[in-house]
């Protein structure tokens, strides 16, 4: 009985940790520009697929990981320079649509150059899983959770303490005022895209031992990550982690206790309920917008 409950909980944590890590990637660009970057899932894919491809080119695993992270960061900066910056005067909705186009483009490139097959990466720890109370917990889930927590703290420090982080926040609050205060807003945005791509690629890399990776893996992960971010309140990193875990746990409990047929429906009901009563999400800022 209890072992069953533990198992569902661990399943939920595994799923939730993945969603949380993906959700974190959305917060940074959202904070900088109020743009929801729908190409975030593709950064995940570049992290995972890039590593697989570089390992295939006989690079040792750590070097391949670093290579994939660099590749994704460059892709993020290029995405800003080539697609977002030229449309700097467009409104947010146009920019969001541009990111959707960019995601399709990146997916196409990956499909063409890296192929269409699914690939696996080895897990980080030697032991595969721990047995707790008759239930199995994957060590990789602990890695994912741990790294998610580290990232939350790092992002909080970055936005709260560093000049760059504050500049990003200032840019998001009022672009013109930030520019008047001497902030090069386009450079700041480029940096935000680069860091966000780095975060996404790191997430993609860490989840690959559990989820596998392929050119189109970013669609599902990106969508679930976005949902998690929306539950938590876009722009809040704590909210992203809580939203991810909530989503993962509700999926696992539904599959375990109700029926696997309703597994995908129940989380969406929860999302609707949360967004109905708390339109800004659980941790979203409730400050009224100045007109």
């Amino acid at each position: 009985m209890f072992s069953e409950f533990f198992q569902f909980t661990f399943s939920g944590i595994t799923l939730g940790a993945i969603y949380a890590l993906v959700a974190l990637g959305f917060t940074l660009i959202y904070n900088a520009s109020h743009v929801i970057n729908f190409a975030q899932g593709e950064f995940l894919m570049i992290g995972g697929m890039g590593t697989v491809v570089l390992v295939g080119a006989d690079l040792p695993l750590p070097a391949a990981m670093v290579g994939a992270l660099v590749l994704a960061t460059v892709a993020g900066i290029l995405l800003h320079r080539l697609a977002i910056a030229p449309a700097r005067d467009a409104d947010v909705v146009t920019l969001i649509i541009i990111t959707i186009g960019a995601s399709i483009f990146l997916r196409g490139l990956a499909q063409f150059f890296w192929g269409k097959e699914y690939h696996a990466l080895p897990r980080f720890s030697a032991t595969e899983s721990l047995s707790i109370g008759g239930a199995t917990l994957l060590t990789q889930s602990l890695w994912i959770l741990g790294i998610a927590v580290v990232l939350v703290v790092a992002l909080a420090l970055f936005f709260g303490r560093s000049r760059l982080g504050k500049a990003i926040l200032a840019t998001s609050m009022n672009k013109d005022a930030a520019r008047l205060a001497g902030i090069k807003t386009q450079v700041i945005l480029g940096v935000a895209f680069g860091i966000s791509a780095l975060l996404g690629a790191a997430a993609g890399l860490i989840v690959t031992p559990i989820t596998f990776t392929a050119y189109d893996v970013g669609i599902m992960l990106g969508l679930k990550g976005f949902v998690a971010a929306a539950i938590g309140g876009l722009g809040s990193s704590t909210g992203a982690v809580v939203g991810g875990l909530l989503l993962g746990l509700s999926e696992a409990y539904t599959a375990g206790y109700i029926s696997s047929d309703y597994k995908d429906a129940v989380p969406f009901v929860i999302i609707l309920a949360i967004l109905f009563f708390l339109p800004n999400g659980l941790f979203g800022s409730r400050a009224a917008e100045r007109v």
Partner: peptide, 19 residues
Amino acid sequence: ETYNPKDTDVTAQLTRIRN
């Protein structure tokens, strides 16, 4: 039991089957 083709974890369903 069933799962969505894009799911990344099905331990909940397998636990039900095992039990």
